[in-house]
Amino acid sequence: MVQIALGSNILGANELLARKNRKLFEQDGTLVINLMSSPGAGKTTILERSLEGITGKLKIGVIEGDLYTDQDAQRIGKKGVEVVQINTEGTCHLDAGMVNKALERLPASDYQLVFIENVGNLVCPAEFDLGEDFRVVVFSVAEGNDKLLKYPLIFREARVILLNKIDLLAYTDFSLEKFQEDLAQINPSAIVFLVSGRTGEGVKEWTEWLLEEVSKKQNRF
């Protein structure tokens, strides 16, 4: 009973701060994406590729979440965007309070698009609303077909799934048909882009869609 109450309190407090973040993003017309994946899925590489396709077209900020280092932030900073690092020091996810603190250094009003690169984990990040517009999951064919059914929440909460490393498809036993069948059970409305962080395949289609989403939000204001 104590554990349930504690969990409820933590998520309740997070929800209040997520609403505060969302209000800021709405009033500024900033599109905010919560980018999630397991470690090694290629999330940072896909983010780099995405930035290459849209930097110069939009004002972009990035909030980088990681346990201890700023290695990913250094990589992203080389793409010519503003980056704020959050080190969770062991916590397996970002929460709305961490993001709210980061906004002191990365004001949403200065940007049209903000990426929040969450900590690599298929479980914890899915439980914490950050105030984002929607969630994007980077999922690699190298992770196998069992992950969707083993970790359904993160896929159920995603608006977009970037199926990465498709250049390795011939070297794995990953089944696109099985992936589509499982996703249809969990989240039939999810938008899927087949991409490769290594070759850049499919990234243009993803970034063109993303630019349209930014435009839609901007036009509401």
Score class of each variant (00 low, 15 high):
Lys20Cys: 02
Asp70Asn: 12
Gly120His: 04
Met1Ser: 15
Asn14His: 06
Leu176Pro: 01
Ile191Asn: 08
Asp95Pro: 01
Lys79Glu: 13
Gln112Pro: 06
Ile60Ser: 01
Asp173Thr: 07
Val114Trp: 00
Val81Pro: 07
Gly56Cys: 10
Leu194Tyr: 14
Ala170Lys: 15
Leu211Arg: 07
Glu205Pro: 05
Glu15Arg: 08
Thr69Asp: 11
Gly7Ser: 09
Ala96Asn: 03
Lys204His: 09
Tyr68Gly: 07
Arg159Pro: 02
Thr69Gly: 04
Ile116Leu: 06
Asn118Thr: 13
Ile76Leu: 15
Glu201Trp: 02
Leu122Ala: 10
Glu205His: 11
Ala18Trp: 00
Gln27Gly: 11
Phe179Ala: 03
Gly53Glu: 15
Pro125Thr: 08
Ser109Phe: 12
Glu64Ala: 09
Asp167Gln: 01
Gln74Ile: 13
Val99Ser: 03
Thr172Lys: 06
Thr44Glu: 11
Leu153Lys: 12
Phe221Lys: 15
His93Met: 09
Ser189Lys: 15
Ser175Pro: 01
Asp95Val: 03
Gly29Pro: 11
Asn9Glu: 13
Lys79Ile: 08
Asp72Ala: 15
Lys78Cys: 04
Val136Asn: 05
Leu94Glu: 02
Leu169Ser: 03
Arg156Val: 08
Arg19Ser: 13
Gly120Met: 04
Lys20Ser: 05
Ser196His: 03
Phe25Ile: 13
Glu117Gly: 11
Leu103Cys: 08
Ser189Gly: 07
